[in-house]
Design a protein around this nucleic acid. Structure first.
Lengths: 214, 214, 214, 214
DNA sequence: GATGAATGAGCATTCATTCAT
DNA sequence: CATGAATGAATGCTCATTCAT
């Protein structure tokens, strides 16, 4: 009827949602899911207690919204960076470095993904959606490694999956442990890029060697 | 005076503590620290609400007890397995495989360690103790890699730390992602040992190459 | 912006606070601080458990609020009644009779003041504030007695403090013991005013005698 | 049957009771009735939790025992000090000074009496017993004042009760307020005896004047 | 007699969520 | 749409009391 007003509304709504999401993510990360109260989030957003419930069904839904957004963001970055016309090795390197960039530039999003969504009693449907997003992220490395072996005319199917897996998880492990605070601060900031570089080189060397070796 | 009775008591006490610890660990892992209530733990242990407080000062203390126990266990296993008279490469391989064994045989303990104790507002003294245990675990790989380079007459100090770090974190990442449920079940169980093996080989190849290369 | 609504709210808030305070005071007096539960107070006020915490930070804060209110009330009454232009003897008599009136008309407030706030582990800042209020009450008699001696050209400084003290404490003792239930009911109500009168006369006689005597 | 053993037992029992009572009184006074736990008392007495219940039915009974003991002690002191053959004025003075001595030398007992036993939901029978003890204490001053008026051939019955009352309560008030911490420390310790003296003199003067005046 | 482990009702307080205004 | 007062179930924890040993 009054599309003009409706558009206005839609825009306002999005602004509000952004405000809430930003506040909530900040707090979830600082204090964890349970220690963050709806009150906290509302205070941080400058909204009243009840208003939040106009934009999100409940605390879990808000959490899920943020969680999905983070995944989306990572996958969008990967999609844009990893072009199908690149060489497989370049694809792999690009994927992992993009992942590093995501970690460095959107740390709060990466951290978000780590809080296992399986612990939160989310509805099964949501869990499934998250799982799919996750697989999407992994696929970028999987397919690149597979292409690499394919182009070399190697059948080793499991091998390629295995290596893709290890590639990804080794970088993940680096980030995880960093987050847990398992290395001293000095090392941490100085060489994260170098560490990822080395890790990539270790694998590249192995890939080339194993491709040649056969 | 009456050592018999005292011993009885001591034994009983230990049995109770074990019962509580087992129940608590199970629940902490299933539902996370915050979502696990004292009532849950007591119900699971078959004890009344107040009894738990006879054995543990409070929820945090119970959590800390379990956490430390897990660390202790891992470090004890590493200590027993990694002998100083082994070849450095053997030490490395043994350390990582012991870590794998710990993960496979005492999964619930490994999982426990992952719940970052930094998020829990534990007393500073406890955090410090946990940090030390953690460093102890890492040391097993550090020192082995360092020895390897030393014996080859290579000075590259940071290099060795860097590689030790990557070795450890890459295995950690494997376990982390497995825990988060990032691979499909079939693959998971069949090849975890093989994955770790491959990961170790990847690094061994790099180590040998980099030692030779110089 | 919308002062109308804001005023409404403010008024409603005050009404609620009054309801809670009345209920709490009643119960604190009947059962003492510790034996009075938040549940009791909420039931008595017709509120739900959580609502109280919307108006008072916690049990101690509620207690402190009531306590201070009682002091305030007494001191306000004294301030209004004891005019600086009165004769010292009249000031003294007025102060003590005002105190009696406070006791008779606002018994529940007087009783409140008796529950020593020092036993309650209140924050130091609160204790200090209460101490000041207390001194304010005493000052009314102190200064009057001092004026009396001054006007008579007597230096006896400690004497005047001493007598002021005894004046006040003797009335206090009367009230205390009455409260403890140390006299039989019949006497209690019939002659409290007369008792205070006699007490005042006893002191007046001594004051005059001691002033003349020197 | 075996009176010897029975006597032993009886003695042991009394020792235990004393130990418990001393510990309990100390704690009740330091922390108040509610904040003192049975555990506290047992720890202080060096006994186990259950043993206390062999000597006292429950926490209230223990409290009541102590309370009565304090009263008993005061009345015994008064009985011994106030001889019927003394002059009435001497009797009065002796009674009040004995009361002061009790306060100074057995402060912990006097303090005990102040915690109103009416708040504690004790059985009615106990309350009655305490009331009687209380009346006994007052009687020492009552009768002396009455004798004083009688000997002077004055009928003024209520007058004598009134004055006796005021005598007692004024001293009581002094002690109460002192306990509540209503005066600064310096005054407190230096002149308590003098304050009581003055208070007694004030009354003596009034007594003599009122006896002469009629 | 003595012990101390066990009990469970009860406490102050928090917090996601609702709903009248 | 927005508010914020109200709700009440739930939480970690305490403690008087009991009872098997």
């Amino acid at each position: 009827m009054r599309p003009h007003i409706s558009l206005q509304h839609e825009k306002q709504r999005k602004v509000r949602v952004r405000t809430i999401v930003r506040a909530a993510r900040k707090l979830f990360l600082k204090k964890g899911y349970h220690a963050t109260t709806i009150r906290d989030i509302c205070r941080e957003s400058g909204l009243s207690n009840g208003t939040l419930y106009f934009y999100f069904e409940n605390k879990d839904a808000l959490y899920a919204h943020i969680y999905e957004e983070c995944f989306q963001h990572l996958n969008d970055m990967l999609e844009r960076a990893v072009r199908p016309d690149m060489e497989p090795l370049e694809q792999i390197e690009t994927a992992l470095k993009t992942y590093l960039r995501y970690f460095l530039e959107h740390r709060e999003m990466w951290d978000m993904l780590d809080i296992s969504y399986r612990r939160l009693n989310l509805p099964a449907e949501l869990i499934k959606r998250f799982d799919e997003q996750l697989q999407r992220s992994y696929r970028f490395v999987y397919t690149a490694v597979e292409q690499y072996f394919e182009r070399r005319g190697l059948p080793a199917r499991t091998d390629s999956r295995e290596l893709a897996l290890l590639l990804f998880t080794s970088i993940d492990g680096l980030f995880y442990d960093l987050k847990q605070g398992f290395f001293e601060d000095p090392i941490r900031q100085l060489t994260l890029e170098r560490l990822v570089d080395t890790q990539i080189n270790v694998f590249k060397a192995y890939l080339i060697a194993s491709a040649n070796g056969r």
